[in-house]
Amino acid sequence: MDSTQTHGINLSINSSDYHLQILPWVTLLDVLRERIGLTGTKKGCDHGQCGACTVLVDGKRILSCLTLAVMKDGAAITTIEGIANGEKLHPIQQAFIDHDAFQCGYCTPGQICSAVGMLQEAKARNREEIKELMSGNLCRCGASRGIVNAVMQVMEGGSNE
């Protein structure tokens, strides 16, 4: 097979269908940001070491920078742009605003997608476990307290839609 051969793939992103013709070495992160223009998903390291590029693939939180887009042909992807329900913010998003759980905002989409994924996984039962299971998302501004408080509030509120 010719190495410059492109592959046709279908992705459902935030419930919209996309057909893309791409080379195999293109990451899902770069597809989202550069090809589709969904720049809400952030590139913080491009190595799988910061969590800023977290998206939900078939409901599970993963790192889009370590994912080749060709490998996700047919997958349903939710990015930060698809977390809110129309104009209505997801409870996690609102809790982030209320708790000032961000400063520069660059890690925020990854934190939020990760938190949504974590609530769906339903493995965290207390503050210590939230901290551990959210530790894949670095925040350089130091908004940890707000982030963990925001997640705690939504978890205790039973609102993990």
Binding site: R33, G37, L38, T39, G40, T41, K42, K43, T79, I80, E81, I83, A84, L89, Q93, Q94, F96, I97, D98, D100, F102, G105, Y106, T108, P109, I112
Partner: peptide
């Protein structure tokens, strides 16, 4: 007061330097 740009940041709409098409 909560950050006025908060909504832009939690929805991924806020654009950074390397994100302009």
């Amino acid at each position: 007061i909560s950050r006025l740009e908060g909504r832009l940041k939690v929805t991924g709409i806020a654009k950074y330097a390397g994100e302009y098409q």
